[in-house]
Design a protein around this nucleic acid. Structure first.
Lengths: 273, 273
DNA sequence: CTCTGTGTGGAATTTTTATTCCATTTTTGC
DNA sequence: GCAAAAATGGAATAAAAATTCCACACAGAG
């Protein structure tokens, strides 16, 4: 007897064997299919109570399907809960075992990054708050000149935005830190302009400082960063959250780039009107 | 002290109080925000291990936020896990409906780009030829200095690669055309180096010309471009094809960025050996 | 440099939870 | 309708998990 390792397999097994089960086990099977979340999260006695069976029946049930005990079966339900839920990070964690032959590896790598990128984009759809997005656009639309600040890994995003804004005939300044003049470039910002800053952990100190200074001068700051702990979030008028997934210790920019593009297009539409 | 009853409240609380927390509690706050699923499903000691803290710190953490113990706090994460899953399914169901209200429309834009990005990534998986990929890596690995050439929309990709190569201690020169010296920078390439050029239609004449010149000098040229008709394909030793999909007349860089990242990681592995 | 108080690691303890076992009940085959 | 087998309930036990507690480390004040 081999125990089903995935929720789908278990479901199948439950369906096919349902009619041959004893009264109590039938009852449990039905409950499990109706309330997979309970199966994933509740304790044996909790489920027993809700399903009006004895705790011991639940253990018998698990054993009848080949598991060593209830806990082992519960893992299947838990995994399913995580994977079916939008929460993408766990999904990512489950791949990326990469101790294969190099023949294999090269494709594995590309596949991993592609999967990671897709998961990041899926996630982007969920976490972007439409109100914040709208607010960000408003600041950018009203700005006379948009200043773009980003360093290191995030710099390409700013560079892309600079190109795209130029296409829209939206004036902008890309603070590239050329000649070590990051702050000199940044401080030429003035009333009527807006700063768009992009940085992820570990946050570029220059960008963080520039954001703070700009905010203190009552100039609007829009930022793109990761999560609520980011120092950008705390010092910006509006912060859009993105999280690009880390695969093999490298982070792609797929989601961030897509967000940037969306920002540009949305802004472009409003400018046309 | 009143404990946050929902995930969002807790998240907020974590964010605002993060800076005042002690070292360990900070560490836990970060872990919790990054791995909410673990917080929902794992045991105290399991989480403690993954977050490299002591079990007792987790209990202290929960109490610091007003809960009676870890278990009470865990309920918040569990509820969130279940509910976020439900929302996700809801979203999928309501997908593809686009009956106006600008309220709705702005999301449509993001959704479109996300879908476009996903499609582009899926496509990337298919069209990348492993042999060409391998060959590209070989040229780059053997190069003394990698020269990066790209203009306009593709420039951010080169900029990203420059950053990533530097991280790998691989020498490279980013031809950025600063001061109008595109060709001057490009012509400093010499035997033993390699050129990595990125351009899509309509192809940047400068990049195309540089590729041709470099090839004529018997220096290896690797390119990233779109399709067999690209003048880069014809004048490169190896050309990797990508096609980022056009949505609302704008092209994202999601797929190209992902390819670039993969290139970097694959190269990085070989350099380590 | 020493004292004081907060923060931390880790073992000990308590509580909760899973599992086993067996007496009792229900089904099944004759 | 009567054994024999299977299934069930529920208390007893074992296992695992959460929580407490205390000795020690460390940072900041004097």
């Amino acid at each position: 007897m081999i125990a089903p390792g995935t929720y789908e397999e278990l479901r199948n097994e439950l369906a096919t064997r349902h009619k041959d089960l004893s009264k109590r086990l039938k009852q449990i099977a039905e409950y499990a299919l109706d309330n997979p979340n309970d199966m994933a999260l509740e304790t044996v006695s909790g489920i027993a109570e809700r399903a009006t069976v004895q705790p011991s029946s639940l253990i018998r049930f698990a054993k009848a399907f080949g598991y060593s005990g209830f806990s082992e079966m519960q893992r299947v339900f838990r995994t399913h809960l995580v994977e079916s839920g939008a929460n993408y990070k766990e999904r990512i964690r489950s791949f990326g075992r990469d101790d294969e032959t190099s023949e294999y590896t090269r494709n594995i790598v590309l596949d991993d990054f592609v999967d990671g990128g897709i998961a990041a984009l899926d996630n982007l759809r969920e976490v972007v708050d439409p109100d914040k997005f709208e607010a960000a656009i408003k600041y950018l639309r009203e700005a006379d000149v948009i200043y773009l600040a980003a360093q290191r890994r995030s710099f390409p995003v700013a560079s892309y935005l600079a190109y795209a804004f130029a296409q829209l005939d939206k004036r902008c300044v890309l603070i590239d830190g050329n000649g070590g003049m990051f702050f000199e470039q940044g401080r030429s910002i003035r009333k009527g302009d807006a700063l768009l800053a992009i940085s992820f952990k570990s946050y570029s100190p220059e960008v963080v400082q520039l954001v703070k200074e700009t905010r203190e001068n009552n100039i609007p700051v829009v930022s793109i960063s990761d999560g609520v702990l980011s120092p950008l979030t705390q010092n910006s008028d509006v912060c859009l959250e993105v999280e690009d997934i880390e695969v093999h210790a490298f982070r792609s920019l797929a989601a961030t780039m897509t967000l940037a593009l969306t920002l540009v297009v949305a802004l472009g539409r409003q400018l046309q009107e």
